[in-house]
Each structure stands twice: as C-alpha cells, then as structure tokens.
Write a protein that binds this DNA or RNA. Structure first.
Lengths: 241, 241
DNA sequence: CAGTGGTCTAGACCACCTT
DNA sequence: AGGTGGTCTAGACCACTGA
C-alpha cells in the first residue's frame, strides 16, 4: 500500500480507497477476515484512529462488517456506486449507454408560491426554469423539470446542457449539492408524457421530487422528474448503525 | 445538558441525541450558528473528539452543515426519521394511522434457483415463504412477499405476524438487519394485484425489491413488495461528504 | 490576522466474543 | 484468558475563511 502523507487527500481516504480496490479486485474476497486494527495500522504505517476511520468508511458503505470480539469481514465484492447526488447523465454513462439531452425550455421568470416557499425566495422572485428530456442511446427515458435559484444557474445555456449533466455544470460554477431530499413514487403516464417518452398512455412512471441544498443549507434546486419505469429503477443501499 | 458517563450508551450518542432534540424543539432554530468545537466540548464536559463525533452524526443526517473557517450551522428543524430498515408497520404508526396485516401464506418449501442464489443456499433447500397484505386504517396498501432463511424465520406464526411487523419479530429472535439493498421501480397493477388492493387494473404501483443482510454479511431475507402509488411514497435523504 | 473546522497521533480503558 | 473492536482523552499541526 502506497501512501503520500503530504498529499492534500487525507491519509484515511487514501487507505480507504486502496482497501476498496482490494475488495473490488477480488484480492480480498467476500467472506475474508481482515487482520486486526493494530496490525492493519502498523502495516499501513498510520495510527490506529486513522486506520479505524478508513475501515469505518467502508463499513458505512456496506462493504465491510465488524463485530466486537470477532473481527472485520468482507461482505460483498459488489461496488455499487452510491447513486448519491450524481445526475442521471453519469448513471447512463456508467451503464455503457450513450446519454443525450433535449432542452425543451430554459427560461427565467417569476416563480409561483409553492416554488418560492421551497426555494426560500419572496413570491414572484425570478427563478430559472429548466425542462429537459433525457435520452439513453437516442431513446427518451425521462422528463426532467427543475427550478433553480438564479444566482446558481446564471449563464446556463441550452447548448452546454445538451452535452453535460446539470450538476456537472453547476459544479463548475462552485455550486455543490450537499443534502438531497427525495420523494419517490409512481404514476400513470399522461397523454403528453406518453407522447414525449414514446410509450402508451397510462404506462407506469417512476416519479422523483427532489430538493437540493448546498453547503450553506440553502435550497438552490427543485426537481420534478419522471422516468419510464420499464427503462429505469433506483438502487439504494442502507446501512444500519 | 445532562450526561451519564457510566451509562452503557456512549457519550457521543447522548450528546448527539440531546443536540438533536434542541434542534427539533426549535431551541436551535434553522440557520442558527453553533459555538465552536472547543467551547461546545467544554460546555458539554467532553473532549473535542467526542464533541466532534456527536456533531458529525448530525451532519451525516443532514441536520447540520459545517464549513472550515466559518462554523457550524443548523440546516433544518425537520427531523425525518431515516426510514432506514424499519418496516412499513412502524411507518404507518408514525403517520398516526392504524396498521393491519393479512397473512395470505406462511409456508416452508424448497426454493427455486433464483432465490437460492440470492440467499446463498443450495438449490432446493427449504425456505420460508411469507405473503402478506398490509393495511392502513383497514384499507389495503401493499402486497408483500418475502423469502427467508429458515434458521431466521423459524417458529414464526401467522397470529403474531398479524399484530407486528416482520422485523420487530425477527429482532426478538436476535436477527438484526444490517445492510439493505433496494431496487425501486414502478409497474402497472395486474388484475390480481388490483383486486387485492382495491384499485383499477393498470393503476400505478411502486415496486421495491429488497435484499437484507445481517451483521455477518449473510443474506437472510428477500422481499418483493408492491405499494399502491396513490397511498405510498418513499422518502430518502442523501448527504454528500 | 484571528478563529474555525479537518487531520493525525499516542495511549488508556472497556465490553464483547471465542476457546 | 486472550484477542477483538468500541470509546474516550489530550494535544499537536494544518487549511481554510473572513474581516
């Protein structure tokens, strides 16, 4: 294991990353027991708290399981990327399909009451409204509507949205999502939705309403997204502490 | 703040709990800045690492936000219970509705190949199959099918399942869920599903496939659940690190 | 520049599990 | 009894923010 103590990336994170790779590569197969903390810390050349922190990171993600008095065990080689706050755009790429976007609308206009309340703006303040259709391999897959605080979305244009995920672009503008609240449900496709997605009226859709906050705790994005249920599912992993 | 150093519940958790209550009660309103770590640690009578750990716990749940060089701020008074691994039974109670269960089937029989692989059993090994309809205020809300390892579900009977959530009963048998992988999607109600749920054929359903592992990393439960989308949504909170 | 949170270390004690 | 992970402490240094 090769660590750079002077690197800006923390030691515990370097350790965790390499440990994760050892699991993903099968070098540490499912069911394998790890050495104890002191041995690991010594072999990594770090203190016990630092070693613990690295291990804990993988425990929190469900890759390792620990039991007091027993030891640390590898649960699964599976390395599901925590879909987290990443955009659908990246998910499509990871599935080795070609993402695409059609921008239907990108306007700035006064917001209604409901949007104002959630974005913590005065009613009637200007907000950026974005309406997209997301494609995978050229076929429509999702209808995505977003309402953004203008200071976050300023200067966005349709051209760059066609080639990048929204969050990628916001990231470049120093807008970083931190907390995402989602409400996931289902509904039947309306006539309009069915037409856009190329499916039948009444076909099942997965709906996701999302509220995104930045590191200051202020909400800068509301999303109302619907997905063709035959083409998309949401995968989550929860770990009990 | 009153702490019991000799209590079996860790200090950092006692602190976190009381801090959470202060936020929930509005004593620390949304947007409020907390004192710095050293002051907090001193006022709580704990060391800085312990204070940090308590704070971090709330940061991970999205209640607090921290910025280096700036401070710690309350994000939201909202205290969404992380639906986590809890059963629908508890969720219904929290919504102040009356839960109910109809046990349709509770049998032990040889499993098919797919179930065997996921439960890590030899094909044809006996598994417990459970088929329930969940009610809220007497109205059907979800159809839940589960396949359980017999050593986990041994001795379950229909009577106790009518009055308790499955996980409550497993908990009493020392079976504790640790990692849950969920795949969430949507589908249209079949004729049979529609009849059971009292909705129209083709009505949208939320589907959840779940794989539950215990602290040893072994999978002891598979679930295939469908919910009436007009009555149920899934709420999640994700925090980016 | 002063103040904040982020990282890292060293060592102590304890609760728990296995044998 | 011996080994494991879980908790807690004390103190040091650093990176970042804002005035």
């Amino acid at each position: 294991m090769s660590l750079s103590p002077s690197s800006p990336v923390p030691l515990y994170h370097q350790v965790a990353t390499q440990l994760e790779q050892a699991i993903a590569s099968g070098q540490l197969p499912k069911g394998a027991m790890l050495p104890n903390e002191l041995d690991l810390a010594q072999s990594w050349g770090v203190s016990r708290p630092t070693a613990r922190r690295a291990i804990q990171q993988l425990v929190d993600r469900g890759l390792l399981v620990r039991r007091r008095g027993v030891g640390t065990q590898v649960v699964a080689a599976q390395i599901r990327r925590q879909s987290a706050l990443t955009s659908l755009y990246e998910e499509i790429i990871e599935a080795h399909r070609t993402p695409g976007t059609r921008v239907i609308e990108l306007t700035e206009h006064p917001c209604d009451e409901q949007v104002a309340e959630l974005l913590e703006l005065a009613p009637g303040s200007p907000v950026v409204h974005l309406h997209r259709v997301r494609l995978a391999d050229g076929e429509p897959m999702a209808i995505m509507k977003n309402w953004l605080r203008p200071e976050a979305a300023g200067g966005l244009n349709a051209a760059e949205l066609e080639g990048n995920g929204l969050y990628r672009l916001l990231h470049d503008r120093q807008v970083r999502p931190r907390v995402a609240d989602r409400v996931i449900g289902a509904c039947a496709a309306s006539r309009q939705q069915a037409k856009v997605l190329g499916i039948g009226v009444g076909a099942p859709l997965v709906t996701v309403d999302v509220v995104i906050r930045d590191e200051r705790g202020t909400c800068f994005d509301l999303g109302r997204h619907v997905y063709d249920a035959s083409r998309y599912t949401i995968e989550t992993r929860t770990v009990q502490h």
